[in-house]
């Protein structure tokens, strides 16, 4: 199972699954890469939870505006048709089920779609949650983008999360460097295994029963 795809390739693979017209929130970190890979024939509206729809890319250095930032507190731009709104409206968009997709990073995802991505529970760490819990249950589809294994080889797609939970049963799909998984009511399905990766290998490495939904042409 040597095949691993890069972060950029993974962002492109994920972006391909977001349809034209979708309203999407991209979490801090790797998920922001997805914006660079949206196919040019699709119109996607980006939501940033600090209060904006139709967020544009980073400005050049001469056009940085400290009043115009994203949730990662990086300078961004506004596209024509953008709107600004307060935090209450912004989180109402999530909780109220108006947001189509959100893409989040993850420490762990469980086989039933529990997500842990806000705290490693390390002693001495400053606890911070931000909008993670709201986002994790506030979009119609919650995609998690993460490496399938930790640096020391432990699976991050697990039967039960060991880290403190962000939300229960909220993840729809997990996009990893080895494969794409769907969290279905009947179990975890592999919808895409990259390169020479097989479902049987993944099953062995993760220690989870997996449903094979890969298509022969996929991967």
């Amino acid at each position: 199972m040597a095949t691993r795809i890069s972060r950029a390739e993974l962002a492109a693979r994920l972006a391909a699954d977001i349809p034209d017209g979708a309203v999407v929130n991209l979490g801090i970190g790797a998920p922001t890469l997805v914006a660079d890979h949206v196919p040019s024939d699709r119109e996607i509206i980006l939501h940033t939870e600090n209060g904006m729809l139709r967020m544009g890319p980073a400005p050049d250095a001469a056009h940085v505006d400290p009043d115009l930032i994203n949730a990662g507190k990086q300078a961004v731009t506004e596209l024509p048709g953008a709107s600004y709104f307060n935090q209450s409206e912004s989180f109402g968009m999530m909780r109220g089920g108006h947001l189509d997709y959100c893409v989040l990073g993850g420490f762990e995802v469980s086989a039933t779609g529990d997500l842990a991505n806000w705290s490693t529970g390390e002693p001495g760490a400053i606890p911070a949650v931000g909008g993670a819990m709201d986002l994790a249950l506030g979009a119609k589809q919650v995609f998690v983008m993460m490496d399938l294994f930790t640096k020391d080889g432990r699976p991050k797609l697990v039967a039960h999360c060991a880290y403190p939970l962000t939300a229960r049963g909220s993840v729809s799909r997990v996009y990893t460097d080895h494969a794409v998984f769907e969290i279905a009511p009947e179990g975890v399905a592999v919808v895409d295994a990259f390169g020479d990766t097989t479902v049987a290998e993944l099953e062995g490495l993760l220690g989870l029963p997996l449903i094979d939904r890969t298509t022969p042409t996929g991967g």
Partner: peptide, 9 residues
């Protein structure tokens, strides 16, 4: 510590 959406609500 309060989740951001709960804090504002």
């Amino acid at each position: 510590l309060v989740p951001q959406g709960n804090l504002v609500e």
